[in-house]
Every structure is written in C-alpha cells, then in structure tokens.
Design a protein around this nucleic acid. Structure first.
Lengths: 214, 214
DNA sequence: CGTGCGCTTGAAAGGTATCAAAAGGCGTGG
DNA sequence: CCACGCCTTTTGATACCTTTCAAGCGCACG
C-alpha cells in the first residue's frame, strides 16, 4: 500500500489560502494552471450564459476537488459562498503524481465516478419533477452530504442564497421561496435563519433520488 | 506505445451478438457480469421510477460503452432502439486488463470525463430552457454526435420515438410533437419520416450548449 | 381490410415565470 | 443606540407555457 506515501507527496504540493465571500476562484474556460480542493467553507460551481442566466452545476464541500485535475481548462466557474479555505496544487505536477501512482489514479477515477453519479442524479431530478420534489430532494441530498443526522433541534445549514438554490434546481428564486414556505405550512420543514429544520422529511419522496445512490 | 497491443487484447475478450428492437440489454441495479459496447445501432440508457415514469440518461451510439466497466452493478437500464449489434466483455477480465495498462486506464478516464461533460451539458440544458430550446439543443447535439454535416438534402435520422425524446428532455410526448411542429412552421426544420432536416438551425441558440463543449 | 401503435392535434387545467412591491437582516454612520 | 440604506427574502397578482385528458390520423402488420 503506497497510498500513504502518495498522500504525503500530495500534501507537499499543496499550498493553502483563503478567499472572501463571493469572490471568484476561477472562471469557466480559463487555463487551469492550478487545481483546487476545499478545506473549509462552501463553493458554488456554475456556468454562465451570455444572456446573464446562470446554472449551478454543484456545491462543493470541504474535502471536494473543484473540477478534475486532468483538464487543461476549467469546465465551469467557481466562487466562494462564504469565506473559504482552499488548497492549491500546481496542476502539471499534480497530474504527474497522480498518473504515476496506480493507487492515486484509482482514487481519481473513483472521484470522477462519484461526480458522474452525482451529475446523473441531478439530471434525473431536473428531468421532470415539480418544484416541491426538487426542493425536498435537494434538502435531503444536502443533508446527507453534510453527514448530518439533522435532529429536530439542530438546523441544517443552508449557506447559499435562495437564488443559488434556484439556479441549481432550475427554478426561479421566487418559486424556491414560495415552495419552502409551502413546505413549512405543511409541517415538513421549519425555516430558520441560515438554515432549515427537517423533521417531516424523513422518507425520500421517491426512489432514484440522490440519497439512495450510495 | 502499447495501445495497439492493448486493443488487440481487448478485442480477444469481446464476443459480439445481436439484440432485437426494444429488447432489454441489462437492467438498473443488476449485477454487472459483463460490460457492453455498441457496434451498430442505437441504445437508450434510462432509469425508471416506481410510478412508471422513466428518465433517459443518454442515447448510446456505435463506439460507445454502456455504463462504466468499473462498477459492479449497472447504474441504469439499457435497451435497443432498433436492431443493435453489441460487444460483450467479461467485466472482471476487462477491468483487470484496463487497470493493468496505463494507456487503457487513461482511455477509460477520458471516456468517463466525456460522459461527465455530456451529463453536465445535459444538466445545463434541463436546468431551465423552454421546450423549444431543449429540442433545438437536442437536435444540434444529436447531429454533432452523429458527425453529420446535415445538408439540406440529407435528413438527420431520429431512430428513437417521440416518447424517448420526451423522457430525455424532461417533457411530455405531446409537447415534443407540438414543438417540432412549431419549429417546422417557423421554417427551422422539416420533419421527414424517421428524421428531420435542419436547414434553419445552423447557429447554436445559446453558448454552453453541447456543441460548443468540444 | 381491420387492428394496433405511434404520432399529431385540440381544449382545458395547473404550475411556474414574470413583474411588482413590501418586509426582514445587517452593517455603516450619525 | 438608533436610523438609514442596501441586499435578500417574502408575498401578491397576472400571464404564459406545459401538462393533462381526449380524440383523430397515418401507417405497418396480420
């Protein structure tokens, strides 16, 4: 098992730094001289359209890589949701280290596979589904990603804005707000500052949702 | 360069066979004893919901792999759109061969990366967009995947059913039909038996669509 | 020639988008 | 400490588009 030594090598490549809220980390199409990992905080990954619309591809959590280290250009843009701590890797070196180690290569493939599964689940979610289905799926998925049990007392943090959720779910900001209000009226959730309590959202509303996919 | 020898090894593993129209190749969740590639025809890859709804994840073309060879279980179901010719690989052996060759590993990673990019573009498309945007994007993407220049004389084949397109785009069958009729009325396309002509669909309606992404 | 399946077309209902305005939070400055 | 302004969120009313339910059409096949 060389993994441990490999990981040490990786760590030596990394330099960590901070980014303020709402500041850009990189932009879609830019040459990717560095690869990034999140160590603290949340990052939104998005693509923009010329007409100003924006689609959020995913929210990155601590431990996540932003984009794949193999691509020469960033496939999307990234900016900080709140204040964020990041690791930066020189991409060429990182690539070399990863590809020269079967273990790391395997890890990277597993990372890509996870991304793909997440993308497909998201795709699945956007395929049809009402606003309510999208929001409940999103909340359940978010909770499971945060690894929270989300007791009735502990609210699930939602650091992103309503507009971010809207751009992630393919809805309008107002619809997100209304639908959340509707779920609260039904007793499924309770809206707290910067988060929600989800006591009534235990069963997945349908199969094939992000939670069931491991 | 070992690639050539590697590919020879791969070919020795493969056995080819035929599947009739609308017949199942494998089902979601099934143990993946074999991996499959398409050599002729078209395959729909989809997930089903308990309520009978179905979401088409993608359409596979000749040269495509169905699902990743690494996963132990199929992430979705596959069936033949028309009559199809396939290659079957014993998955464990295929996995071993691929992982033992850096070149093949790299090829597989590139395949996964393509899949991921396709999934994200699709995701992007489903995110918002009207029925018309979805259909035009789909047609342009399909044309570019088929590698057709699509002259005014040569129709773009659409072997799948209207319902398949609907399940792929997150629309209803009727909406697909109506929207195609609308595009024809506007002169953007012409509907032919088993295909369409797209003389008026040269410019991509927006950036970030599947065609621009390499 | 009749039947079945896929596609098209029609009319009505529903949900989300859009436009508009008010309410809530938070930091800054008086 | 309170007031102000800015930004985010909520709420309201209306319009539009897609869905839904239904029926008719065209074609292949028995």
């Amino acid at each position: 098992m060389h993994e441990e030594r490999d990981l040490t090598t990786l760590k030596r490549l990394a330099t960590s730094f901070r980014v303020d809220a709402d500041h850009t980390i990189f932009s879609e199409g830019e040459f990717a001289g560095s690869a990034f990992g999140v160590s603290r905080g949340f990052v939104r990954l998005f693509k923009s359209l010329p007409d100003g619309r924006r689609r959020i591809v995913s929210f990155a959590l601590p431990g996540d890589l932003l984009d794949t280290p193999l691509a020469d250009r960033f496939a999307f843009s990234a900016d900080a949701i709140g204040e964020v701590s990041l690791c930066r890797f020189p991409r060429e070196q990182l690539k070399k280290v990863i590809l020269s180690s079967p273990d790391l290569t395997r890890l990277l493939m597993e990372f890509e596979a996870r991304e793909l599964r997440a993308a497909r689940n998201h795709l699945f979610l956007l395929g049809s589904s009402s606003a309510e289905e999208r929001l409940t799926s999103f909340l359940l998925d978010w909770r499971s990603r945060l690894g929270q049990v989300s007791t009735a007392s502990q609210p699930l943090p939602l650091p992103m804005r309503r507009g971010d959720i809207a751009d992630f779910l393919g809805l309008q900001l107002e619809t997100v707000s209304r639908t959340l209000a509707g779920l609260e009226k039904k007793g499924a959730i309770r809206i707290a500052p910067n988060g929600v309590l989800l006591p009534g959202l235990e069963r997945a509303p349908r199969e094939g949702d992000p939670c069931t996919a491991l």
